[in-house]
C-alpha cells in the first residue's frame, strides 16, 4: 500500500499506518523530501521514497492524501503544477498501475492537484465513495457504543 502526499502534517497517516500494519499490509510512504517528517521510521512505514513512478507498479492500493492549498510563499514545493506532475495521480500514471490496483483518498479531494478527475471517478479503481459510506457506518457504530449501547445494535 502506498500513501502519497503530505506525510509531515497528516493526521490520517498517524492512525492509518498503524491500522494498515495491524492488517498485515506493507506500507510505503511517498512524498517530496520537504513533506517527509524527520525520523520518518517512527511512523512505522516499511519504506520511504520520493520517486512515485518507481514504486507505483508495485502498489495494490494507492492512498492519496489531500494537499493543503496554502500560501505559495514558504510552501514546501514550488507550485501545484509541479506537485501534480511529480506526485499527483494523473491519468498518465494509470498505465503504471497494476490492473486491479485501487485508489483511496480521505476526502475532500483537490481535483487536479493530488488526483485527476479521471482517477478520482475511475469506475474500477476508485473506492473513495465506498470509503465515505464505510466512514458513516463506522461513526454510527462508534457513537452507539459511546452512548451506552452494549448489544450488536441491530436488534435495538
Amino acid at each position: 500500500m502506498g500513501i502519497v502526499g503530505d506525510i509531515s502534517h497528516s493526521r490520517v497517516c498517524g492512525s492509518l499506518i498503524p491500522a494498515l500494519k495491524i492488517m498485515g499490509a506493507n506500507v510505503c510512504v511517498i512524498a517530496p523530501p520537504t513533506l517527509i517528517p524527520a525520523n520518518v521510521e517512527v511512523l512505522g512505514a516499511d519504506s520511504v521514497t520520493s520517486d512515485f513512478d518507481s514504486v507505483l507498479p508495485d502498489l495494490d492500493a494507492v492512498y492519496m492524501l489531500r494537499v493543503q492549498r496554502e500560501r505559495m510563499e514558504g510552501a514546501p514545493f514550488p507550485s501545484l503544477r509541479e506537485y501534480n506532475m511529480m506526485f499527483g495521480l494523473t491519468q498518465q500514471r494509470d498505465r503504471l498501475m497494476k490492473p486491479d490496483a485501487i485508489i483511496c483518498h480521505p476526502g475532500p479531494i483537490n481535483r487536479g492537484v493530488e488526483l485527476d478527475s479521471f482517477m478520482a471517478d475511475h469506475p474500477d479503481r476508485s473506492v473513495i465513495l465506498d470509503q465515505v459510506y464505510a466512514g458513516i457506518l463506522v461513526r454510527m457504530a462508534a457513537l452507539y457504543l459511546l452512548l451506552g449501547g452494549s448489544e450488536d445494535g441491530i436488534a435495538a
Binding site: 514558504g74 514550488p78 509541479e82 511529480m86
Partner: peptide
Amino acid sequence: KGLEGEILAEMGDMYA
C-alpha cells in the same frame, strides 16, 4: 524563483 530567495523554483520540471 527569480533568484529572490522566497519561493522554490520548479526544480523538478527543470530537472526533467
